[in-house]
Design a protein around this nucleic acid. Structure first.
Length: 592
RNA sequence: GGGGCCGUAGCUCAAUUGGUUAGAGUACCGGACUGUCGAUCCGGUGGUUGGGGGUUCGAGUCCCCUCGGCCUCGCCA
């Protein structure tokens, strides 16, 4: 080891010791006779002083140092002179009086420095990620991520889980997300797929008797990106045998409490609250509601039916809903311009036909450009239903059930943030349970599995498989943190007959099922235990625990929205010979 | 595939209604300086205004196309 200490380590008790530091030049202050160097590594910063006593050549050498040069500095630790202590630095009481200075490597003038106050654009930071990763804020993310993964591994290890790796090169299954494909050289015209999750393998492991499996698994989905979605991401994946949903939820409750305590010093009350899917949709229009604040949805469909206002009555009469929420005391926040923006938002993003609103006046009456379409008695009823008080602002969407959910959930989230309805440091953990088994795919006129086709229905709902698929609920559970889906799992079908029934409902015939999941169906016939599990999104955990609003900040080498890597410039071209070996020919864009 | 925001010096930003030679801070280069810590002071280099086309007497500014980044709807079992 070239160094004896790190740059974050030196304190008053090290005074008079001869030490050697290695690190990057964070900044220099050249006074001619003396040069001050802030030397940085991932542990902190120390001031290194090249003073005249050390000799002219050393001072001259120090004066030529520039940002991000890598140096070795050897010398004596000394107390700083009175009045020059820097209390912004943990090492600020002392300094290293250098006697030997070695330049281990020069740096080109960097496009940005880790210490600069104006953060450069994200594209530049990603292009020079090796510089960006030197920034303390990014290091905080990498540190937190490492701590979270370690805590998770410790926790599951203590609970007798076995860490087992599953293949990355697997078989494509057309359900779910688009697969990333890998061509096979050996098998002409055939492809592997990268896993969207280790789902089937972990079920096989249960059949094989490894009754507690866990893995930190890379997963791949070739879908469009978002602030909280990357094409490759990491899951803490686990599966257990002989358990029901409560067992899995209880286990994760314990993990969440431990992570909150260890990493945030926060006490979380257990069990975590649970919300049924139907209730979540009714109260928040959202299957991952942000419970850090209220502003719940209120149904006024029955009142709307009595209104002259055609938009309201029409939605109510045609099987839709009229729902809204009350932005308490916020009437002053909504200029016409802002309301127009919000109207555009629900129209553009969720297909709502419009956004109705009322301002609650000083005398308690509701005022709105549309209020002349309502009788006074009806307005009073709306007002009572919405618990309206002077200064409140009411918003309503009249549309299909689906659109009222999406539009009001989006609006509620947006206004929750804009009106600062919650403490940014607050953490709220909860479960959403009792998801429907199926959702109807309007486009293809068929049922789809809401979670995946191996999900078990609730025991009391099994009979509904024959009668009414729509009302059949699954043994599924999602972990929600601050309105983000941070994890999700199910109890699986371990009964072959039931599994086949579900396949039939999903329109997957015997032959297709055999072709795609034959190995699972076969395994289920050789003594498959009841089993279930969950996968937690590690990137999102880091993002939420660390207070970032962007998953890229929590990944060492993330991809841009168009799924490219600005540093390596992946994806890139390959040689024609490589393609030839794989029997692949690309089609020019013009011929598509 | 749709909607929105953005792109000016290495970096962060400014530039009146379309109007003189596109500016500032910082970085960089040179000089001064022995206690600074966003060091200070003096001087200097640095521009295809992302790219292409158009409108105009005149375009960083307006229009069209295109490249790239971000947010979002669709998509993500």
């Amino acid at each position: 080891m070239l160094r004896t200490h790190t740059c974050g380590e030196l304190r008053a008790e090290n005074v008079d010791q001869e030490v050697t530091l290695c690190g990057w030049v964070d900044s220099t202050r050249d006074h001619g006779g003396a040069v001050f160097i802030d030397l940085r590594d991932r542990y902190g910063k120390s001031q290194v002083v090249a003073a005249p006593q050390a000799g002219v050549p050393l001072v001259e050498s120090a004066s030529r140092l520039r940002s991000e040069d890598v140096i070795l500095a050897k010398g004596l630790v000394a107390m700083r002179p009175e009045g020059t202590v820097n209390d912004k630095l943990s090492t600020g009481e002392v300094e290293l009086r250098v006697t030997h200075l070695e330049i281990l490597n020069r740096s080109r003038t960097p496009p940005f420095t880790p210490g600069q106050q104006d953060l450069p654009g994200e594209d530049l930071r990603l292009k020079h990620r090796f510089l960006d990763l030197r920034r303390p804020e990014v290091q905080r993310a990498m540190y937190l991520r490492s701590r979270i993964v370690k805590s998770m591994r410790d926790y599951f290890s203590e609970h007798d889980f076995l860490d087992i790796e599953t293949p990355v090169l697997g078989r494509s299954t057309p359900e779910g997300a688009r697969d990333y494909l890998v061509p096979s050289r050996v098998h002409h015209g055939k492809f592997y797929a990268l896993p969207q999750s280790p789902q089937l393998y972990k079920q096989i492991l249960m059949v094989a008797g490894y009754d507690r499996y866990v893995q930190v698994a890379k997963c791949f989905r070739d879908e469009d990106l978002r602030a909280d979605r990357q094409p490759e991401f990491t899951q803490l994946d686990l599966e257990m045998s002989f358990v029901d949903a409560d067992d899995v939820i209880g286990l994760i409750d314990g993990l969440v409490a431990r992570l909150a305590a260890e990493l945030l010093g926060m006490e979380v009350e257990l069990p975590l609250p649970r919300l049924a899917y139907d209730e979540a949709m009714e109260r928040f229009g959202d299957d991952a509601p942000d419970l850090r604040f209220g502003m719940e949805l209120v149904d006024c469909t029955d009142l709307a039916r009595q209104a002259e206002f055609r938009v309201f009555r029409g939605a109510a009469d045609s099987g839709g809903r009229v729902r809204g929420f009350n932005a308490k005391g916020a009437a002053g926040e909504f200029s016409r311009k802002r309301i127009d923006e919000l109207t555009d938002y629900v129209r553009q993003d969720f297909g709502a036909k419009g956004l109705a609103w009322f301002r609650v006046e000083e005398d308690g009456t509701l005022w709105s450009p549309i209020s002349k379409n309502f009788s006074n008695e009806l307005l009073v009823q709306f007002s009572e239903r919405m618990e309206a008080e002077p200064g409140d602002q009411l918003f309503f969407v009249a549309d299909s059930w689906d659109v009222t959910c999406k539009a009001l959930a989006g609006l509620r989230r947006r206004l929750g943030a804009e009106l600062k309805l919650y403490d940014e440091n607050a953490m709220h953990f909860s479960w959403v349970v009792e998801f429907p088994m199926f959702e109807f795919d309007e486009e293809n006129q068929r049922w789809n599995a809401m979670h995946h086709p191996f999900t078990a229905p609730r025991v009391e709902d099994v009979a509904l498989l024959d009668e009414s698929a729509a009302s059949c609920r699954a043994q599924a559970y999602d972990l929600v943190i601050n309105g983000s889906e941070a994890g999700g799992g199910t109890i699986r079908l371990h009964d072959c007959a039931l599994q086949e029934k579900v396949f039939r409902l999903l329109g997957i015939d015997e032959a297709t099922a055999q072709e795609r999941f034959g190995f699972l169906l076969e395994a289920l016939q050789y003594g498959a235990p009841p089993h279930g599990g969950i996968a937690l999104g590690i990137d999102r955990f880091v993002m939420l625990f660390g207070g970032w609003d962007n998953i890229r900040d929590c990944i060492a080498f993330p991809k841009t929205q168009r799924a490219s890597d600005m540093m390596t410039e992946a994806p890139g071209d390959v040689d024609a010979s490589q393609l030839a070996e794989l029997n692949i020919r690309t089609i020019p864009l013009s011929e598509r």
